[in-house]
Write a protein that binds this DNA or RNA. Structure first.
Lengths: 342, 342
DNA sequence: CTGTTAGCGCATTCAA
DNA sequence: TTGAATGCGCTAACAG
């Protein structure tokens, strides 16, 4: 077996209590004792058993992250920045996917709760608010104490009141739309996702407000809410371009849709037909300059969101769990891409 | 406090032992007792404390993953497929970044060991083999038992003997190079990464073997090992194209370099100058068809690699930890991209 | 089939 | 400043 605190105590000629205190940097340990402990630890190759400590302290120094999919650019940037921020405080990150299912999400949440995570970061799946809230209430009641801190990132979950770190989707969409309009585009298609998702809905609202305030026509046949993935972008663009009188300008809800739509235009339309197309879209990626029709993209401060979420969590963990939930909205940055032959 | 197994036992009028057995699906529990336990669990809202169980069983049902960076397409695809494979068996995934530093990697490994992870998946940082091996030996010795199962993914770590799941980098590079040659390209630039990385080295070796076997010239001034990122791709391509007599064909080590190189060509060269460029590169991405000069890409079976790694780990965890390490090499799929005006 | 008992490794009272 | 004793919640012998 591994050396235990007991072995260290024996080797150092001290009690386990003193060794424990020394190990945890308690000021009331004499320098002499501390040195003896250090020596014994070294000699035995002792490493602490975090599981035993957690059982005692009821803190695992772990935060759980639940996302609709792990393999997304947004999530991996988020995970990386959270890891950076949290590992300094000795926290680990346990990640799992809800597969965009509210039911699965609750299962995962329960599973993480059983593992006594100290905090939870959730990018909620569609329509998961009430489920999450119910589960949360239940656990809080059963535990007879405040619920584990939870912060929502990227999306809201209607029915769940919790801290949240979000992007100003509405404002970003508004500005990008206005920029396209300022370039002379008066008619504009919109390709988005289900309005049940707060991100998709807010981006739609921003686009809509811009169109209305600028007196531009909102044409239903060129407004689509088909989905957030490459295939839906391709399909939505195909459908729109098949209609007579399709506009030249488009607002796209994210990078996946952007890639899909561009794929359609590049592979199925003649260069002369697509020549005038101009696109504004959420998400700035390394390959954005290579998306042929991209004129404006909205860069999301994903890393910063991870930092904010981590700090909120740490604050809640070691502080006022009961303070009323706060929402932080970070701006998206509008990036202009030059027109150029590609 | 949360209800404990003791509370359930009291409520059900049974002993904690029986409750524990019922909870763990032991066949020797009578249906009547099992029903009583279910009832009590329901009534009390009992959920198991995994930490306590782990302390007793010395198994946390957790696997740790260490990668040089979390924000990479490869890593997130891997994490997603591992999560899918492992969550079914009740395992959680705790992820952390080594920031491409061997020193940090060992720290993380130590940290995960303290948390008693049941297994480790490592994408090793540059030159980390000996460090990892030393740490591993040390832990095994101190623990007085077999080391925790560890499987290497994507890259090898010279000096560390362990199970590994890899891609046939050499063969893939060979085939892509040969395909470019078959299209009539006799001179070919190579943009890769440090040869200390097994992936970069193997891809270089595959390219080199193809060039030699096909009797094509290997020109040092058009062979670069500058790095694996977007910026290095851009810079390497810039440097090569600045030389007189730059070739038209290029083999690129991965998607990031591919994006960078394409960015250079598209933004800094006239269409007439770059018109003849043809590229073969590792990694097939949703946006690959939009990379202007891409003729061949090598699709890596990342999800499959995650599944394999997970299964190897589960096998080691519940079986022969001492069987000699095995390496699985999965083929990369060569994908042809049509030339078309973009 | 079920209960009693004894720890897993640690932090933490309470005394000294 | 230190030590002895206790228990976190669970599983696993061992008996019955």
């Amino acid at each position: 077996m591994n050396a235990t605190i007991r072995d260290v105590a024996l080797a150092a000629g001290l009690s386990t209590a003193t060794v424990s205190r020394a190990l945890n940097g308690d000021a009331s340990v004499s320098p002499a004792a501390a040195a003896k402990v250090r020596g014994a630890v070294e000699a035995l190759g002792y490493t602490m058993n975090h599981v035993a400590r957690s059982l005692k302290t009821r803190s695992t120094r772990t935060v759980g992250v639940i996302a609709p999919e792990l393999a997304s650019d947004f999530f991996m940037l988020l995970a990386e920045s959270m890891d950076r921020e949290l590992s300094g405080a000795g926290y680990g990150l346990i990640v799992c996917s809800s597969w965009e299912s509210a039911e699965e999400e609750v299962k995962r949440m329960r599973h993480l709760a059983e593992r006594l995570v100290d905090g939870l970061v959730v990018i909620p799946a569609t329509g998961s608010g009430e489920c999450l809230d119910r589960e949360r209430q239940r656990r809080a009641r059963d535990a007879g104490r405040a619920e584990t801190p939870l912060v929502l990132v990227d999306r809201l979950a209607p029915g769940l009141e919790a801290d949240a770190v979000l992007v100003d989707n509405e404002g970003g969409a508004y500005r990008a739309t206005a920029a396209l309009a300022a370039d002379g585009h008066r008619r504009m298609g919109f390709i988005g996702g289900s309005l049940e998702l707060s991100t998709a809905r807010e981006r739609y609202e921003g686009w809509l407000r811009a169109m209305r305030e600028l007196g531009l026509p909102v044409e239903e046949e060129f407004t689509s809410f088909t989905g957030l993935h490459v295939a839906s972008g391709y399909e939505a663009m195909r459908a729109m371009r098949a209609r007579p009188g399709a506009p030249d300008a488009y607002f796209l809800v994210n990078a996946y849709v952007h890639v899909g739509a561009t794929n359609y235009l590049v592979s199925e339309e003649s260069p002369s037909r697509s020549a005038g197309v101009a696109i504004a879209a959420f998400d700035e990626m390394p390959y954005s300059p290579l998306l042929r029709f991209c004129r404006y993209s909205l860069s999301q401060p994903v890393a910063e969101m991870g930092v904010r979420a981590a700090r909120i969590l740490l604050g809640r963990i070691s502080g006022d769990r009961s303070a009323s939930p706060r929402t932080e909205r970070l701006p998206a940055t509008l990036i202009k891409h030059d027109v150029r032959y590609q």
